[in-house]
């Protein structure tokens, strides 16, 4: 077996790994229940999957120009995927596309409640009788 054969073999393994991760991402997209969970499946394993596929391409082509063409693809994917995921998750939370019953901890909901409650207090002096500390508790959660 020459080194070329070995490189081809490694490239093949990387392609299969990349395909597997993309498949898992697709399955997760169908099986998970709400927007944020689906985003995990849709945006994450696919980053490593892309990395595997691009590595396979670079190994197989073995030229600098291919490597230089492949590098920006990965960099842009890594820069843009978190931002699109963040925007969609944010919109998903605000439009209520979220299974609150499946959340163990919801710090964001508490923070939003606290802010809206203090705003209400400031506007209409409507202090919640059950929670006298509401107005003074607008501190960052620790």
């Amino acid at each position: 077996m020459s080194t070329d054969d070995i490189l081809t073999l490694i490239a093949g393994i990387f392609l299969l790994l990349g395909a597997f991760l993309s498949l898992a991402a697709g399955v997760g997209l169908v099986r998970f229940h709400d927007v944020p969970s689906r985003l995990h499946a849709a945006t994450k394993p696919q980053i490593l999957g892309l990395l595997f596929v691009l590595t396979a391409i670079a190994l197989e082509a073995q030229s600098w120009s291919t490597l230089l063409a492949v590098a920006p693809v990965l960099v842009f994917q890594m820069l843009t995927a978190p931002i699109s995921a963040h925007m969609v998750a944010r919109a998903g939370y605000r439009t209520g596309n979220l299974r609150k019953d499946e959340l163990l901890v919801d710090d964001l909901g508490e923070a939003i409640d606290r802010v809206t409650r203090t705003e209400d207090d400031a506007v209409g002096d409507m202090v919640d009788p059950d929670d006298p500390a509401a107005a003074s508790s607008a501190r960052p959660p620790s």
């Binding site: 597997f20 991760l21 898992a24 991402a25 399955v27 997760g28 099986r31 998970f32 229940h33 944020p36 969970s37 995990h40 499946a41 994450k44 394993p45 939370y93 499946e102 959340l103 163990l104 901890v105 919801d106 710090d107 964001l108 909901g109 923070a111 960052p140 959660p141």
Partner: peptide
């Protein structure tokens, strides 16, 4: 995450953490 997506029991609870 790939394993969690593929395993029969799926995912359990998630969290929003500050």
């Amino acid at each position: 995450v790939a394993y969690q997506a593929l395993r029969p029991s799926g995912i359990s609870q998630s969290s929003l953490i500050a």
